[in-house]
């Protein structure tokens, strides 16, 4: 019986990356979550302090982390936000985009957390 991923996770992509090694997939999610938690704080601090370049760099780092977890939609939103950062002159111009980004990141984190729990059960 194959594992049912959250619909927001690109299952085909995950399988193309890790085949059906669900123990390793669980490791990938755990590592991603571990790094995501402090990285989100840096994103928030960069935005609050108006550090546009720092904000772009942090989103640039988070983007492939979502990719490795199969959250390709979140990865695309990060890419779009990174592009917006390059075009903007201040974080004030990104208010609405930032709201969407943060919502996406939080949702991604929550999905990854749920998948780790479900994979624990599946792998046992």
């Amino acid at each position: 019986m194959s594992f049912n991923f959250n619909p927001k996770i690109d299952r085909d992509f995950i399988i193309s990356m890790y085949e059906d090694d669900y123990l390793y997939i669980s490791e990938v999610f755990t590592t991603t979550l571990g790094q995501l938690v402090p990285d989100i704080e840096i994103v928030k601090n960069s935005y609050t302090s108006g550090d546009l370049d720092g904000l772009r760099k942090q989103v640039h780092k988070i983007k492939p982390a979502f990719g490795f977890a199969g959250l390709r939609g979140a990865e695309a939103i990060c890419q779009s936000f990174e592009d917006e950062c390059l075009a903007a002159t201040s974080t004030n111009e990104l208010k609405e985009k930032y709201r969407v980004l943060l919502q996406t990141i939080e949702e991604g984190r929550s999905i990854i957390q749920q998948e780790i729990e479900s994979l624990k059960v599946y792998n046992n």
């Binding site: 490791e27 990938v28 590592t31 991603t32 790094q35 492939p64 982390a65 490795f68």
Partner: peptide
Amino acid sequence: EDLQVAADFLKK
């Protein structure tokens, strides 16, 4: 590589 998940995958 500063992204741990990418470094781990490369090692693998």
